[in-house]
Deep mutational scan, measured.
Amino acid sequence: KVMEIKLIKGPKGLGFSIAGGVGNQHIPGDNSIYVTKIIEGGAAHKDGRLQIGDKILAVNSVGLEDVMHEDAVAALKNTYDVVYLKVAKP
């Protein structure tokens, strides 16, 4: 199931950690970017929809399929206060 989640960045950013990407696979044979941690009190935690194990398909208009881990981190960092995440639920 794919959904779009709109998050408003807090003082600590979006409030979640990711793993995965080309050269840094979270699941062997899979280059996808996965949510590995939700920080308590952060934007994602308060919103409640993003969960550990969700796959991040895109940030705003930037696709995160088959990208390097660093590029995924940069895509999440290089955002304004309002961030749209395209997410696939497991």
Rank of each mutant, 00 (worst) to 15 (best):
P90Q: 14
N60F: 00
K55E: 04
D47R: 00
E65W: 08
A19S: 14
K86Y: 06
A75I: 09
V59T: 03
F16A: 02
K89Q: 09
I8H: 05
G15D: 03
G21W: 01
V83E: 01
Y34P: 01
G41R: 07
D47T: 05
P11S: 09
G48E: 07
K86H: 08
G13P: 06
Y84S: 14
D54N: 05
K77Q: 09
G20H: 03
H69D: 05
E70F: 13
V22I: 06
D30T: 06
D47S: 07
A44S: 05
N31C: 04
K6W: 04
V67K: 11
Y34M: 10
K86S: 12
A44D: 01
K55D: 00
K46R: 10
E70G: 12
K86L: 07
M68E: 14
A88T: 09
G21S: 03
A74Y: 11
H26Q: 05
I38V: 13
A88N: 08
S61I: 04
I33W: 04
M3K: 09
L14D: 00
K9E: 04
E40V: 08
P11D: 07
I8W: 15
A75N: 10
D54K: 00
L14F: 08
K46C: 12
E65R: 10
I39P: 07
V2M: 06
K89F: 04
D54E: 02
G63Q: 14
I5S: 00
L14Y: 06
T79Q: 10
I8F: 08
Y34Q: 03
V35K: 02
Q51A: 12
V73S: 10
D47E: 15
V2C: 05
G48P: 02
V87E: 01
P28W: 04
M3E: 05
A72R: 01
E40S: 12
Q51S: 14
V87G: 01
V22G: 06
E40Y: 09
G15M: 02
K46H: 09
G53E: 05
L76Q: 02
T36M: 12
L57W: 04
E40R: 08
A58K: 15
K46W: 08
K46A: 08
L85D: 01
V83T: 13
L85F: 06
V87L: 11
K55C: 12
M3V: 05
D54M: 15
P90R: 06
V59P: 00
N60M: 03
P90W: 07
E4L: 09
G63V: 12
T36Q: 09
M68H: 12
I39A: 09
H45Q: 11
P11N: 11
S32P: 02
Y84K: 13
F16C: 03
R49H: 11
V62N: 15
